[in-house]
Amino acid sequence: MIKSQCKQQEHFKKVPGPPPAGAFKARPTAPTSFRKFYERGDFPIALEHDTKGNKIAWKVEIEKLDYHHYLPLFFDGLCETEHPWEFFARQGVHDMLEHGGSKILPVIPQLIIPIKNALGKREHKVLCTTLKILQHLVVSADMVGEALVPYYRQILPVMNIFKNKNLNSGDGIDYSQQKRENVGDLIQETLEVFERNGGDDAFINIKYMIPTYESCMLN
């Protein structure tokens, strides 16, 4: 009797656990169209390789650019992780948002797919950049926060997955905080900016997609 029980237990031990679903794993994407356009020289930017590497020299005034054409293309480049594409996409988006004003709002619907793709890549660096860009986008012009509310269904699911990605280092130093590369913190910040700028419906829509989110305004 005992022998047969032991045999049964051994049998159970051999059953392997479920394979990892890979929800947090980075998903590689194909080269973006931003890269193609960049290589072809379609962007009105001067390519420089000097030591002052934090600025883009624009060949045309940003105010005169066609935002419907260029802004979605630059957003498309957020998926890039390699220099120089990554830098030009990030800095290009930054400059266009900073100086776009009222031209940004009508382009919002075209930005959602590139944002969704970038977040869906689930790569640490891309996530950080995209979240910072989202924070900038929301405050870049009037009504942009409200205009994003209908698209929460596209943007927020990935944030829901990574919301708890926060290192518990005890009393040690978490250097990612200083560098603003802590995904959990960045997501919390982004959601708060969304809520503050998204109007009356923002909170309930965020809560629907991310049930663990607590309001930063109601309490």
Binding site: A46, K55, I56, A57, W58, E61, E98, H99
Partner: peptide, 12 residues
Amino acid sequence: KKLVRRDGCFYY
């Protein structure tokens, strides 16, 4: 806010 460089490019 905006400067024109000597080569005609714009810095924002």
